[in-house]
């Protein structure tokens, strides 16, 4: 064989290898694309017995949860989830926006390089540790400081009256959640803000605007969809948070009327009852149905915010 042919064969082999690798790699990329669907289908399949036996509206809006009597009303849990998430997001958003705007617009490189590892560490702390912190610090804080502050003063204010005296409840869960979702909201908002070209900032500063005027009139209007998406992303993270919330929220299936009430969010319901669910008919189907409900809501939140963010961040 002459040299040209040898080279040709090597070339062909290399090309073949390239195509082969491409095919295998492509095959693996299918996995994440269909995984969401597989998870949803599997949950639906296991939840099917209860979905076929009860009206969906009875499950979602039913108020009574007594599995051994065949009563599976998700309403207290859905409301509990909404309450805790809302309180967490309301507490987190103002501080997060201020911090991310500060880091993106005002802070020196040195401040940023200190803030980033702090946020990374906050994001790295496991949920169960957040739960321990909530139990040791936040629950007593609500009990000893916030509740006495509110008691007597805010009793007539709806949503804020002190109803039970332990410190466990929506407010404690909300505070813990707020700290947990803060790093996510801050880092995504920061990234969104950094997509604004400096030319735009300079155009505003150049006519003598102050920095805050520039931020309010130029930077925020330009990035509003992305900022909202960051908040929605944070909210969806809060919706699914399980262990940390479960440890401080009280876990009583009531319909909350105040942030001092206890609540029983969906993820806590699922986590707390995995042990006994096989012994009662339809119990496991109900719990996996609860997981399915959670999944669907989070998927909607997630897909919407991700689409917005993908478009914004690519513009860079």
């Amino acid at each position: 064989m002459n040299q040209v042919n040898v080279i040709k064969t090597i070339q062909e082999n290399r090309t073949k290898k390239n195509i082969f690798a491409q095919k295998i790699f492509f095959g693996i990329t299918i996995f994440p694309v269909i995984l969401t669907l597989i998870v949803a289908i599997a949950l639906f399949f296991r939840a099917f017995p209860i979905l076929s036996e009860y009206q969906l509206s009875d499950l979602l809006f039913g108020e009574v949860w007594r599995p051994n009597q065949g009563l599976f009303g998700f309403r207290p849990f859905i409301l509990g989830t909404i309450w805790v998430t809302t309180v967490g997001v309301i507490l987190a958003v103002p501080a997060c926006l201020l911090v991310s705007i500060y880091l993106a617009e005002y802070a020196h490189a040195r401040t940023r390089s200190i803030a980033k590892p702090i946020l990374d560490l906050l994001a790295a702390i496991p949920p169960v540790v957040y739960g321990v912190w909530g139990l040791l610090s936040i629950v007593p804080f609500v009990d000893d400081v916030l509740a006495p502050l509110a008691e007597g003063r805010l009793d007539s204010v709806p949503l804020l009256s002190v109803t039970q005296p332990t410190g466990f409840g929506i407010l404690a869960g909300g505070i813990v959640l707020a700290v947990m979702i803060a790093p996510l909201i801050i880092s995504v908002t920061f990234e969104v803000l950094s997509t604004v070209p400096n030319d735009l900032r300079h155009a505003s500063l150049g006519v003598g605007a102050t920095q805050w005027q520039t931020i309010r009139n130029v930077v925020i209007p330009q990035t509003l969809p992305g900022i909202i998406a960051a908040i929605v992303l944070g909210a969806s993270r809060a919706l699914g948070e399980t262990i940390a919330v479960l440890m401080v929220v009280g876990n009583v299936p009531n319909i909350p009327t105040s942030i001092f009430d206890t609540a029983y969010p969906l993820p806590a319901l699922i986590a707390n009852n995995y042990g006994e669910m096989m012994s009662i008919p339809l119990y496991d189907a109900a719990l996996l149905g609860a997981a399915l409900v959670l999944l669907v809501v989070i998927l909607i939140f997630n897909i919407l915010s991700t689409l917005v963010l993908q478009r914004m961040l690519r513009r860079k």
Binding site: P32, L43, G240, E241, P267, L294, I298, L299, N302
Partner: peptide, 10 residues
């Protein structure tokens, strides 16, 4: 990104 947002309880 969507998978990343699915909570671990799910």
């Amino acid at each position: 990104d969507v998978l990343w947002g699915i909570p671990s309880i799910v």
